[in-house]
Nucleic acid binder design. Structure first.
Lengths: 252, 252
DNA sequence: ATTTGAAAGTGTTCAAAAGACACATAGCTA
DNA sequence: TAGCTATGTGTCTTTTGAACACTTTCAAAT
């Protein structure tokens, strides 16, 4: 940082926000939590976006992201990782609909806003949007059915998804999307959804079991109309040992 | 982004900067370009930092980073990748020396500054700090000998190094650090320096040659006091083909 | 009671890649 | 011409990845 140029007119004092791409998984497909930032008095069209807020004075970036998540979903201690900063001068004013919305709602609709994007993984059943007060118009959308979002939020979503794909190959963060007790099939399905490709069932099981980061709960599914599956949970201690040994590849 | 809370006192209008971790390689070890932001009239202690500047009104984040690089080194078209945003409220005021420096040089020494960090890879001989007008006090420091930098720049350096390690395993960006013509030993050494571990010579050669992204120039080193080595160059076309086929692992 | 449907669970074989390892060669220099 | 120094090369073993099909268990329907 070179802040010697004290009074250069060209310098920037933008607003700064965080935006959170919140992923969920319902044992069948991957979802993202979207809010409808339209449907206000002044702007009535639906306008899906990733939740976010301006950053406060005293909080660091992670804290701001956690606050947004907490306010929206009530959930704390969520898995959270920074995607990066998005700061195109025109990022919030590219589309007509964005400009109209900004005019309807902001004192300075042309002010530049730079955002720091995060993605996070939550256990979907822990958050039912309908039950939240904040989220009058929040809901889970299947990631594959999202094509268009406010501002550059579609780019942010894609960047989050890319990072999740990369990350899940080198750290077992996927457990944050599953219930505490889960079956190998569910885990298998999760990896297929995130990586967006089919994985051989037997090979997947062998590999994940060989990692030794699952504890077999010696407990079975009940009430399912087929052979009941063993339930497992994530074994954090073994995972710690594994990572200390310098583990860095799931190889899926 | 949820900008509905127009006039909330707690919101933030920070300054925004970019900081660039510029890596170089002299065929022997990895270097980082540092500037001495001390040695001004008002503050005379040496104070090494990564180069950076405030972001201007009209430029996007990548452009700002490129501008900093250009101004400092005169080099354009450098390989550049965002590391992420660093925004701890206290990131520039943690150390006594930082606070003193800020007081000596800034109108509002306590103003919050959020920075977007980049790392970039340059061919060291293309930039000799001594020859640059801007960089009266810029110089290359061996990465392994850097222990302490201004603000949170040491953290930023480490984050850049980590990202470089990760990235070089899935994209051959290392060529940006080598001269256009290089030997396999030089490439080998580069990978060892970045990954900070020994790699078997024969296995390395086999793997890198099998990728088919090197063109043998049928040209030899001259004047070396040992068996002269073949020279190679990076074959961009073959690399493009390779990545389109879905290549994502160097496996070192 | 029997059948049906649906997902669970399980091993082997083949091919490819990773890892370990040692000596002859070419050019400079003294 | 002897010595130094880094180059360049191949094989074997082990590990990992990929392909592949049938039996089992339970609930639900008949």
């Amino acid at each position: 940082m070179n802040l010697q140029s004290k009074n250069n007119k060209k310098e920037l004092n933008p607003s700064l926000s965080v935006d959170c791409v919140i992923f969920g998984f319902d044992l069948d497909q991957l979802y993202v939590l979207l809010i409808d930032s339209g449907s206000t008095e002044a702007y009535s069209q639906s306008r899906m976006a990733v939740p976010g807020d301006l950053i406060f004075d005293t909080e660091n970036l992670d804290e701001a992201a956690r606050r947004v998540l907490k306010e929206l979903t009530g959930i704390e201690n969520i898995y959270l990782e920074q995607i990066g900063a998005f700061g195109d001068p025109n990022r919030i004013g590219k589309k007509d609909s964005d400009r109209k919305w900004l005019e309807s709602i902001r004192a300075e609709p042309n002010a530049r806003v730079i955002t720091v994007a995060y993605y996070s993984l939550v256990r979907m059943p822990n958050f039912n949007p309908k039950a939240s007060s904040f989220a009058k118009s929040a809901g889970w959308a299947p990631v594959k059915e999202v094509f268009d979002l406010a501002f550059d939020h579609f780019d942010i979503l894609q960047a989050g998804l890319d990072q999740l794909k990369r990350k899940i190959k080198i750290q077992p963060i996927g457990f944050n999307l599953l219930p505490e007790k889960f079956t190998l099939s569910q885990l298998h399905k999760l990896y297929e959804c995130i990586l967006d490709k089919a994985l051989d069932k037997r090979n997947f099981r062998r590999k994940i079991l060989n990692l030794n980061i699952l504890t077999n709960l010696e407990e079975k599914q009940i009430g399912v109309p087929h052979k009941p599956s063993q339930l497992f949970k994530f074994n954090e201690e073994n995972y710690k040992k594994l990572s200390e040994e310098g583990f860095d590849n799931f190889g899926f």
